[in-house]
Design a protein around this nucleic acid. Structure first.
Lengths: 190, 190
DNA sequence: CGCGACGTTGATTTGCCTCAACGATTGTGG
DNA sequence: CCACAATCGTTGAGGCAAATCAACGTCGCG
């Protein structure tokens, strides 16, 4: 059931059978319908979610009412609002399933028991966070360096299958421009 | 000498005297003149730098030759290119001192010895990375939500003393617009 | 079938950039 | 110590890329 996750962890640290068993005992499972929420604005985010299957988006609502997507997550990615998760304060974000989605998750209340029981898991999360931090810097680099059009081309080059998987207006939001403009870019690219 | 750093760590994890001693034995010290570099494009980043005193910027050079600042760091902040630091691959970034700066740092070659010797330090870094990851999300939120003008006002509200501390053209770069435009914003704000 | 969500296309507007000139300040070498 | 250059900030004119606004087409679904 959690094979995707244990395989993913094995790429960063090696757990003994015992450690793996302890780890799995801390996991919970949740199934989400399309458009279901894992977190809504104003709630505390109690879980750190690993996507076994499906796709999530993290967004906030702007002053003008538009939804601004900050992050997507697909299979083998973790998703949470760490500020809310760690400090148990209300979040300003929504986390929603774009498709039918299955997640494994760790509850904030048991996180430290898990780390104390299996220290290698704490190392695993440190490495994951390093990776995500680097990804954020790269993302800022693209935002500042590329025109909106080039940003789309670059993203398409990296994740062509993902572009097919989500509605265009969501991708436009993530990339930081309007759906109309994305439509015009695509027209030019034929 | 490293009191700023040990104090900072104490805000996240509590170390015994022995642990603190071991930790400090892994630290190195470096003094930088204004405009000195800790990292240049093409080099591998061998250190994770903690600022005892002074100010650093992390930037890359755009196609048009302009320097795009991605990050500032002042006292009590860590600065490195984690991608380069962890994977020992050449970096695409520069890390430069804006003022005369003193840093404590950990070398990538000794990082894992340190973590194995004092596991609480690994926890400390996990928490720091969580904080930085959250900060990145917040930063993206401001980039997407606010106009350049409001971004400046917001930044000024958060860090008024820091705005005085650095040249305007660097702040304009960090906020993602031109020095001329920042000048016009400031003229309007009087 | 009819409605709502999504994508496309064109006309118009606008916010910020580019370019250029100028002042003020700092630093440097004769 | 002064002359000069270089750096940094200001101001204004003009241009352009993307947003906005509006209308229309199409598909999927209740």
């Amino acid at each position: 059931m959690f094979k995707n996750l244990t395989d993913h962890i094995a790429r960063f640290v090696s757990l003994s059978e015992d450690e793996q068993e302890i780890f799995v005992s801390y996991l919970k499972y949740k199934h989400l319908k399309k458009n279901g929420f894992l977190l809504e604005e104003g709630q505390v985010c109690h879980g750190n979610y690993f996507i076994l299957k499906g796709c999530l988006r993290l967004y906030f609502v702007k002053d003008n009412g538009n939804k601004q997507i900050i992050q997507f997550a697909i299979e083998n990615w973790w998703m949470t609002d760490y500020t809310s998760f760690e400090q148990k304060i209300p979040s300003g974000f929504f986390i929603q399933a774009i498709e039918e989605t299955e997640v494994a998750y760790i509850e904030s209340s048991s996180q430290y028991d898990l780390f104390d029981g299996v220290p290698k898991i704490e190392r695993y999360f440190r490495l994951i966070l390093q990776k995500y931090h680097s990804a954020s810097l790269m993302r800022l680099q693209y935002i500042y360096d590329l025109t909106p059009e080039d940003r789309y081309r670059h993203f398409y080059g990296l994740f062509p299958q993902f572009v097919q998987r989500i509605p265009q207006y969501m991708l436009a939001s993530y990339l930081g421009f309007t759906p109309e403009f994305l439509s015009k870019i695509r027209a030019k690219m034929i």
